[in-house]
Amino acid sequence: MHICLSDGWGGLEMYPARIIPELQCQGWEPHGLALSGSRVADSMASAGIAPLTVPSRGRALLQVGRILAHLRRHAIEVLHCHKSSDLRLGALLATLRPGLKLFFTDHMGVTRPKKDLYHRWAYGRVTRLFSISEATRERNLAAFPLPPERIRRLYLGIDLAPYSPQLDSAACDALRRELGVPAGSVAIGLPGRLTRGKGQRTWLEGLARLSQWTPGFDWHGVLIGGLTAAEGSDEVYVASLERQVAALGLEERITFAGFRPDLPRLFEALDIVCVPSRNEAFGLTVVEAMAAGKAVIGADSGAIPELLDTGCGRLADPESPEAWAQAMEALGRDDGLRRRLGQAARARAVERFGMSAHVRALTGEYAGDA
């Protein structure tokens, strides 16, 4: 049973629904526990399971008897939590029903020690803690009251199939026009939530430098991500980005595309994908762009350098607009280089970050000895 009692919507919340189909393909019977009316509950239902729901995190603790009965009825032996706050429930269930295996994925990357009495109790019941990169594992080893052998690095995976090219040239050109990309321009995209820490400000400053340094270079920037709080973005921050675009004189060269459910197709319309996030715990967008065969520029911080190297992408300082301008110009002026990097990136994504391999490694842990 995957437990995710969150009313938010991001990579953490999307994870259970993303892996449910592959769990079923590999012979497992996945279950879910989510908040009533949450997008997590809806996503689990869309993925093919009917989750058990509770009205709130607090009520989940009060309904522990109901949850235990559900576990017994369905012979559930594995619990997997995705928010640290859900470990209270997971640890309680594991305490009341000895023999349950409890797993936790640290999707966010812990930032402070968790070794007080409560955390020693809760994490003491965790069978295995998954770090989604080597960068986060180093922090996990320092922060959590667990021995090293119970903290494993397990990279996330994606379904590779949707990222294979599907558009013919006419459809791709039509999509570029929809995004406001002029014919003949290099389309430079930045996908992701419009929130602080994702690096949009540095990227826009880099594009302004690019415009100043190379006035004859035709490019167009595309910001892809929800523009409202309901779509996971910070509306105050979005407004500040719009003001920044105006102040930099880039209104005609930047498109705010908003939330797009067809991100794999948008990748086909882009020439370069940028991910300037300062401290990614993993970098799922990087892997998605790699799977789409795109030339990627990522921040040289957090976990992104584990995904990209000079053979399949480029890295730039997330605090340096100049570094981003230089990297974007170098790739923008060399379509052969973009093509070679994209082919190498696709090959690496297939080799290392497919969903099937991720779920096989995950279920191997589920089935292993505690």
Rank of each mutant, 00 (worst) to 15 (best):
Y237G: 00
Q26S: 02
L207F: 07
A325Q: 11
L315G: 06
W213K: 13
L194K: 10
W213S: 12
F256E: 02
T53M: 05
I3Q: 05
K115V: 14
D106P: 05
R339D: 12
T363H: 06
A370R: 02
R339M: 11
D335H: 12
R66G: 08
L52F: 13
R260T: 00
L223N: 04
A325P: 02
G336R: 11
G221A: 15
V181F: 04
L270D: 05
M328F: 09
G336I: 06
A361L: 11
A135D: 14
S320M: 03
D300Y: 01
E280S: 01
S84G: 08
R59K: 09
S6D: 14
I304W: 03
C172I: 07
S356N: 03
H31F: 14
A281M: 07
R253T: 04
A171F: 02
G298N: 03
L117W: 15
A183N: 08
S277F: 01
H358V: 05
E178I: 01
D159R: 13
Q63N: 13
G221S: 14
R253W: 00
C274W: 00
S301P: 02
G232C: 03
G298K: 06
R260D: 00
L207W: 08
G109H: 04
T105Q: 05
F282M: 07
P276T: 03
P215L: 07
R360E: 12
L71C: 09
A281T: 07
P162Q: 06
P113G: 14
N140M: 05
I272F: 10
T202K: 10
R153H: 02
P264C: 01
V236Q: 12
H70V: 03
R348I: 09
P165N: 13
Q212N: 06
F353D: 06
S38V: 08
E149N: 13
L179P: 05
S6I: 10
L87M: 09
A349W: 00
Q24W: 04
P191Q: 08
W219K: 05
L307S: 03
Q343R: 15
A91V: 04
G298A: 09
H31K: 10
F103I: 01
L102H: 06
S46I: 04
L227G: 03
A316K: 04
F130E: 07
G10D: 06
L337S: 09
F256D: 05
